[in-house]
Amino acid sequence: MREIVLDTETTGFDPKTGDRLIEVGCIELMDLLPTGRTYHTLVNPDRLIPPDATRVHGITDDKVKDAPRFADIVKELDAFIGDAPVIAHNAQFDRNFIDFEYARIAHPLIDGSRWIDTLQLAQKKFPGMPNSLDALCKRFKVSLADRTFHGALIDARLLAEVYLELRGGKERRLDLSSARVTAVSGPVTAAAHGARPRPLAARSTEAERAAHLEFLKATLKDHTLWEGYGLDMEKAPAA
């Protein structure tokens, strides 16, 4: 199962008011684990970046002045995403900017059904609790030590770890595939698990065991139960 975790950084909150996308970061997951493949680029927004936005992500006008425009990176981005589901936190925000940039160059949009919002997943799992990416990282003990500013690729990495936890946690790393699990059918016997390498020493004496068999033969009418455990009642000493 291939999925793409995506995060963006922008000049503001709404592309309809003139804000633009300035960074995209993607992480590839396969069966809920990172493959090591990533996609990351800065994007020239053809406008100035407000100081308030720079304080959040640390991206300045100077950093993006020589970056490619979205039309120049769309083929690479499209090829990386492919037809995989797209995972994002508060996905509507990232989707608005991606859709806006696609629409500007008359590029087909990513189908809405392919977007998976981890904020909605978290709200269902932790109703009434803080569910920002930072809050979820702290809840799941995902380290934020390497993040000085918000950045598309580093936030995508953090979100990939959070998404793994939301989908079932680290126990998904266990290999429980049918190829590695051998089913044992029928009664469980010592042979099914292998013989004990060093048999335990008997805790009773021979005289005590003989006395016990005499007791069983004298008092029990149904010997079959005990014979099933290896006690040969016919060889028991006469009562």
Rank of each mutant, 00 (worst) to 15 (best):
I110A: 09
F80R: 05
W115S: 03
A88K: 02
I98K: 08
G112P: 00
D94M: 02
I110P: 02
I81V: 12
D83S: 13
A84R: 03
F100M: 04
I87T: 09
I116P: 00
R104G: 10
A106Y: 13
P85A: 14
V86F: 01
A88E: 04
S113R: 12
A106Q: 14
N90A: 10
W115E: 05
R114P: 02
S113I: 13
V86W: 02
Q92T: 14
A91F: 10
A88C: 04
G112A: 10
N96A: 13
A84H: 01
F100G: 02
P108A: 13
I81D: 02
R114E: 07
F93Q: 05
H107Y: 15
R114A: 06
R95P: 03
L109M: 08
F97H: 06
D111T: 13
P108V: 14
F93K: 03
D99Y: 11
F93W: 03
A88H: 02
N96Y: 00
Y102Q: 09
D117C: 15
I105T: 01
A79I: 05
I110Q: 09
A103V: 06
V86E: 02
I81R: 03
G112F: 07
D83E: 15
H89M: 05
D94F: 00
F97S: 06
A91V: 14
A103P: 00
I81A: 02
A106P: 00
R114I: 07
I98N: 08
G112N: 12
Q92G: 03
D83R: 11
H107L: 10
Q92E: 14
A79N: 10
F93C: 05
A103W: 03
R114G: 05
I105V: 05
P85I: 12
D99E: 15
A106W: 11
A84D: 02
A79H: 08
H107K: 13
E101A: 13
R95H: 07
R114V: 05
H107C: 11
P85D: 15
H89K: 04
E101N: 11
D94L: 01
H89V: 05
R95V: 11
H89C: 03
D99A: 15
Y102D: 06
G82L: 06
N90F: 09
I110C: 07
F97Q: 06
N96G: 00
I87P: 00
I81T: 03
I98F: 06
Y102T: 04
G82T: 05
R95W: 08
A88F: 03
E101T: 12
I98G: 07
H107P: 01
F80I: 07
F100Y: 12
H107N: 10
F100Q: 03
G82C: 07
W115N: 01
I98V: 15
I87F: 08
A103D: 13
I87R: 11
I87G: 05
A91R: 10
P85C: 13
N90V: 08
D94S: 00
P85K: 15
A103M: 07
S113C: 07
P85T: 12
F93I: 09
R104C: 15
